[in-house]
């Protein structure tokens, strides 16, 4: 992975690294990707993909509104203004 590609990836991830972290992580990532590449030495043919280890039965909840009693408890973890959560500009 070249430096430009790495910088593009950091931008996509919204991760900023200081100089030391960048040096350290880019070297680690090279080594890890090389290790990940060993997976491609192995032929998987037409095997299907397993998104879960077990079969998850389709079990949807009823589409009905349930009142959550502790809304103040949730808002306690945010900065609020007149019962609205304050966030950054978009």
């Amino acid at each position: 992975m070249d430096a430009n590609e790495f910088d593009r990836l950091l931008k996509v991830c919204r991760i900023s690294l200081n100089h030391d972290e960048k040096d350290r992580i880019i070297n680690d990532i090279e080594e890890i990707i090389k290790y990940f590449n060993t997976l491609n030495e192995f032929e998987t043919g037409n095997t299907s993909e397993s998104y879960h280890a077990i079969r998850i039965p389709e079990r949807l909840r009823q589409d009905k509104v349930e009142a959550f009693q502790n809304t103040n408890g949730i808002l306690k973890n945010t900065k609020t203004y007149r019962f609205y959560v304050v966030g950054p500009k978009i």
């Binding site: 991760i15 680690d28 990707i33």
Partner: peptide
């Protein structure tokens, strides 16, 4: 996200890749 530790940053970058 600068509050993440080094290993968390490494995994976010690789996971996104």
């Amino acid at each position: 996200r600068s509050k993440f530790g080094v290993e968390a940053k490494r995994r976010v970058v690789l996971g996104t890749f």
